[in-house]
Design a protein around this nucleic acid. Structure first.
Lengths: 191, 191
DNA sequence: CCTTAATGGAACAGTGGTGTTCCACTCGGC
DNA sequence: GCCGAGTGGAACACCACTGTTCCATTAAGG
């Protein structure tokens, strides 16, 4: 009973290789969604054959990436403790957590297909929690009631994406980009 | 002296066909940047051969799209009369003009390669005018001096993209999306 | 140390988009 | 009605990526 299970539990080595491939793919595909599997393999430092061993088809890799990013989003959402304190402050904390997703941010933003690939067709727990928090902000008066939930969600993602791009193009530090992002968000959602 | 010139002047029919192809390509590629030339031809209602007749290589079509969108951006920028009145108001007018770009907006936002394809490698007149207006806003006190020009530019594009997406996903009307966009921009850039 | 897991590389067939050529067709205007 | 510009479609070679198989080599780990 040391190993196997329904689908999980891989030998340490395999788990590590798998991670290397997924991580490399995230970075590479964020920059160029059409990158070939050969490129991914090279970036991950493994042979193309190995990539196919772990992900028989391209779509399998995409699905794995989707699941991976989703997990990170869910984890970040939990860390933000959305139910604590004023809703507006909660969204700021969420921004800081999400910002750590880095290139995963770009993928989420420009490749909504990833959503369809992996499990989450409909609303995810994180998304639902987000929208609920915005409504709480409307009720308690810390978020402009003129901005409906979906718009606030779009806004937050757009700001995060902009901030991430700002570090890549304007060469700004992650910290200063985050400061601008939070500053802008705070003013935008204030009643 | 009825026709030809350095590069312009096509027989009315050719000009119309050309437009149909470029317009269809903008809409199609905004939705899926990997769409094949066959798809573009079908969307434009012409044969694949015809597409190649006008644009020998795929990159030629991309360049044409880049030029086309760029022209529209420049025209929209002029219509916004950035030098009139308070800079903050000028940016709001610019937003409204840019919003009319529709799918061109998506392309500009997620396909910065288009910039490289066509002529404008470096700063364009529109971009320069935009940054100058932001600086004017800083000086006259209508724009938050804590937000540097590049960030404001990123912000405006991100808001526009979000608003456009908002009409496509949340099914919002163009008008309500624009209202949210302007409302958010106004608060975000206020000192 | 020795077995097994894990890997890399070569070689292959299949696929889909690309770019080209050629020819027949159809308009619109003279 | 005629003519040529403009077009569509078929057929073709080409190429990059994909997905598969097989084998030799390496690293892990008991």
């Amino acid at each position: 009973m040391s190993e196997e299970r329904t689908a999980a539990a891989e030998s340490g080595t395999r788990a590590r290789t798998r991670r290397a491939i997924v991580d490399a793919a995230v970075v590479l595909l964020a920059g160029d969604p059409t990158a070939s599997l050969g490129d991914v393999a090279a970036a991950a430092g493994v042979g193309r054959t190995t990539v196919h061993r772990y992900f028989p088809e391209r779509s399998d890799l995409l699905a794995a990436i989707g699941t991976d990013v989703l997990e990170k989003v869910e984890a970040a959402t939990e860390r933000a403790r959305l139910d604590d304190g004023p809703a507006a402050k909660a969204l700021e904390r969420l921004c800081q957590e999400y910002f750590e997703l880095g290139d995963g941010l770009t993928l989420m933003f420009e490749t909504p297909q990833l959503a369809t690939w992996s499990g989450w067709d409909e609303e995810t727990a994180a998304d639902e929690h987000f929208l609920r928090t915005v409504r709480r902000g409307h009720a308690e008066g810390s978020i402009d009631p003129g901005l409906d939930e979906e718009w606030v969600r779009n806004l937050v993602w757009a700001l995060l994406y902009s901030a991430w791009e700002h570090t890549r193009t304007a060469g700004a530090s992650k910290h200063s980009a985050m400061t601008l992002c939070l500053h802008t968000l705070r003013k935008a959602i204030a009643p």
